[in-house]
Design a binder for these strands. Sequence first.
DNA 1: CAGTATCCAGATCGATACTG
DNA 2: CAGTATCGATCTGGATACTG
Lengths: 134, 134
Amino acid sequence: MPTTTALSQAQELCDTLTDDADELIREIITRLTDKWSLWVMHVLATTDRPMRFSRVMEQVEGISQKSLTKTLRQLERDGLVTRKMFAEVPPRVEYAITPIALEMFEHVEPLWLWVAKSVTLFQSAREAFDGRGK
Amino acid sequence: MPTTTALSQAQELCDTLTDDADELIREIITRLTDKWSLWVMHVLATTDRPMRFSRVMEQVEGISQKSLTKTLRQLERDGLVTRKMFAEVPPRVEYAITPIALEMFEHVEPLWLWVAKSVTLFQSAREAFDGRGK
DNA sequence: CAGTATCCAGATCGATACTG
DNA sequence: CAGTATCGATCTGGATACTG
């Protein structure tokens, strides 16, 4: 196959990866589409300073405590946010975005922007399909 | 807020979107991370000619008939693959990738490549986290 | 061949209640 | 304040059997 398409690059890199790495890549990419991760990161990124659990919860409208905890743990585990606990009463915990997360954002945005720009195309595709009586 | 970060572009575009469009964008992006969609598209893209249902099923190792049907229907609905039925016995149905899907790939790949290149970073983040006894 | 129909297991996520 | 524990509804996807 000629190496003219964007597919070929991925193809080559893909072959060098272990199964573990492959699964981790999937999980990282999945963070971009599960219900809250991107929103939580966005809040932390735009605020751009450490935020308490309850502040994040206010900004991410509709999230439950349980889901916020889980989301933050996942993001922390993957190095996308940091968690700092203070030995105070009442307890204070601060979350912050990491450089690697910001770098990831730089690569997510072009894709997201393209989809957003192309949204009318997708809308008419759906109308055509649904209109065919499926 | 200054418009110096990549975040600001998305911010502006986001404000112009209807809720419907917003949801559709989410769904399109979600296709990138559900279990089979990207793999199915990849098979159709690299083969680069119409493929029968059973050929796709062979190439996408481990997928069930039900999941393949569902995946193809979703992709068809969003205009990412085409479906052509032939009035023959036994029935023949051919699927093909669309230009818009190929265009989407061009925007997905940079992100995917970045994650793949950064995978060792994510791996050590996890080791550090898991090693802390969480 | 290319599905559809049915059943089922596991994961996700919200609501609620409780705790150091 | 920042969680954990528990329950239940919903969704996803696999296995299997059946059909035009």
